[in-house]
Design a protein around this nucleic acid. Structure first.
Lengths: 393, 393
DNA sequence: ACCACTTTTGTCGAGCGTTGTCATAAGTTG
DNA sequence: CAACTTATGACAACGCTCGACAAAAGTGGT
């Protein structure tokens, strides 16, 4: 029952010899050899040549065989959907993108996703049986345990819809559903900051949200609504917010608020996209307003730093990519307002994934489920007994 | 190597039959029987009579034997030290208390602790060999991994002092060192809210701090400084703080700040203790000021709720116990300023431990270490081989 | 090209923990 | 008191793990 333990060691993609695996796992070389044999016979692990000889017979190297199974990562935004087919190392193979509006409802959106998944798999000459899991990020609160959105503000018709069950029915494998910001945090942390156990991703776009990874694990909170930074009160602001309260971060520093501020200064900015464009063109007003928004976000992040003491904060979302001013404003306030001990080793970085943190995270979510010890051992057990006596049909 | 798994099932204190354990563990009844035998022979588990017959031979019940080993929990405050001897169920057996000042330095304080521990153990007619672990909470930032305080503001001479190593040398067992607020959170959650995985404890006394439990695990952050709520900025305040910034929560709502506020109103209140006394006497001014302080704390906690979505917040510390007004002010603002989804099932409660959350947590920390699978299996292995061939003396 | 040496590999018997079975013990029910 | 039910302890079969050993596959020196 511990074949998965050996496999786990190979999860990082590095190739290893049997001896190395024995040392790392604590098992004997001969036992490791047996596990490697089962993993090889099922395709999860493949030999990748020999190691350099150290004076005797060279050891053969083994590594994770990324193509053994497939996973699907889905990023659903307010007005777009991306479906990506990836291998077990998390590398994307191919993807589909559509300009769908989530407001069209779950069946329309999920139907397209199922169809896209089917097509992508077929296009690779493989079948849905090869798909080990699906990960999907939704732009709203999600009850992770049941895979259902809960009162999502911008997703009419999705409330308590059984997303996981519906997709599982059509694709035939486990479906993991989560909030889009959580997914982004997972994607960013696992790909760019794998050694960092305490990590926060802030997404700044039309709204503002955060994904929190503490102790190496994504924290969703009791109802799965953790990370909702958008309606935290900003010191010194009384701006009215659509949520009914005043002084919310989102009412000051999110895309629409920044655009409105620019219009007050006489600059024509209708949307978040135009704000990004203005910043890219070097508009002085945009720079100024973005820096101020950054300071406001920094006030809130300073508190996050004091509370959670992360070692990395990544600033992502559409507004973050284009605007260094935003980043500068954030850093300025965080380093001034947080405790020295907490900021000493704190890094505030831009997203390293070029805008696809969402899909990356969805893929990661799927892979981590499919390759988790329990699931994997069950899978190995089932596949190693091809002719199971069938009692009923 | 999985005897600890069976033992783990009995950790909750409930007695169980072999069959029940077999069902819960997934092992066969006969295997469970063998593990129970080893656990019994070493004293960790004891038979506690028979279960009611269900028509045949009654099954014998087994339960954790709390007296098998001892643990020691230590709570170090600014001006007091408590050392408690407890059994494996976390129940206190006896305790020592002293009015020591931490400022007297590590050797004085730890020396007293070691002596008190020795005395308490001897008093029970047992030896230090029976002590499985020591847990200790210190009033300042602690690097948990190394067991050393880091730049603690009120503990001169303790910076980087090897508390764990020093005590281990005299008591001869593992020593776990943590921040006092973390310890309190652990004590409160494990004893009063064991089902709650997302939990926050706020301590309001001379300072203000929080202990965060997410996903069932205490979160210490990257440098172990997580939970530092005292210097978060409160919206609408510009009060200068001793830390150099302004508008810090501690400068508005902690004991000294409240006392100062009362003096402004012409009420004689020199210390935190006097504030508590005034509130107990029903002073109107105290009630008013405490409610306002509660609101300020509520502003900060509202953000904590949005960020972490806990299901329980416990308000502890000297100020919390006596003052319902403080609690009322906190609740008022948290429920108004946090997201409805996050507050729907949120409970804000007073501490259920009568002021001894700190010691309770220290005891829990020690027990959870001593009974963790790895440590326990090693222990069982060693004890089951009484006459190990000694190579050197 | 050959030989001595080094290191890995696959195989195999021994050892240990787990499992299921079965006779026995210890209750209940009529 | 007899028939029945359920738990217990002992035991042999099974499976996983380990250490050992001979064969395989390299390196380096002559």
């Amino acid at each position: 029952m511990r074949t998965s333990e050996i496999f786990d060691l190979l999860r990082d993609g590095r190739a290893r010899t049997r001896s190395e695996l024995a040392r790392e796992s604590g098992l004997a070389r001969s036992s490791v050899a047996l596990h490697i044999d089962t993993l090889m016979s099922l395709g999860y692990v493949a030999p990748v040549g020999d190691a350099a000889s150290t004076g005797g017979r060279p050891a053969s190297l083994f590594a994770l065989n990324p193509g053994a199974r497939l996973v699907i990562g889905v990023d659903v935004g307010a007005t777009h959907v991306i479906v990506e087919l990836a291998d077990l190392s998390g590398v994307g193979i191919s993807a589909s993108r559509a300009g769908l509006d989530v407001a069209e409802g779950p069946e329309a959106v999920l139907g397209w996703i199922a169809e896209a998944a089917r097509a992508l798999v077929a296009q690779q000459g493989r079948t849905l049986d090869d798909v080990a899991a699906v990960g999907i990020g939704l732009p709203g609160p999600v009850e992770y345990a049941t895979g259902r959105p809960i009162s999502p503000p911008i997703m009419p018709g999705w409330h308590r819809f059984d997303v996981a069950g519906w997709l599982r029915e059509r694709i035939g494998c486990p479906v993991l559903v989560d909030n889009d910001v959580n997914i982004m945090a997972l994607g960013e942390q696992r790909t760019a900051w794998p050694e960092t156990d305490d990590f926060v991703l802030v997404k700044i776009a039309t709204g503002i949200g955060a994904g929190v990874i503490s102790g190496g694990r994504l924290q969703r909170g009791a109802q799965g609504t953790a990370g909702d930074l958008g309606h935290v009160r900003v010191p010194g602001s009384t701006a009215p917010c659509r949520c009914g309260n005043e002084g919310c971060l989102e009412a000051v520093a999110a895309g629409p608020a920044i655009a409105a501020r620019l219009r007050e200064l006489g600059v024509d900015a209708a949307s978040t996209g135009e704000v990004v464009a203005l910043a890219a063109q070097g508009s002085r007003e945009a720079a100024q307003v973005l820096r101020e928004a950054g300071r406001d976000i920094g006030e809130v992040l300073a508190m996050v730093v004091n509370l959670l003491n992360p070692s990395v904060i990544v600033v992502g979302g559409r507004l973050a990519g284009a605007a260094q001013e935003l980043h500068a404003g954030i850093s300025e306030v965080v380093y001034r307002r947080s405790l020295p001990l907490a900021t000493e080793h704190l890094r505030i970085a831009a997203s390293a994934t070029k805008g696809d943190a969402g899909v990356r995270g969805a893929v990661v979510l799927a892979i981590e489920h499919a390759l988790s010890p329990d699931v994997l051992d069950a899978e190995l057990l089932e596949r190693s007994r091809p002719a199971q006596p069938v009692v009923m049909r």
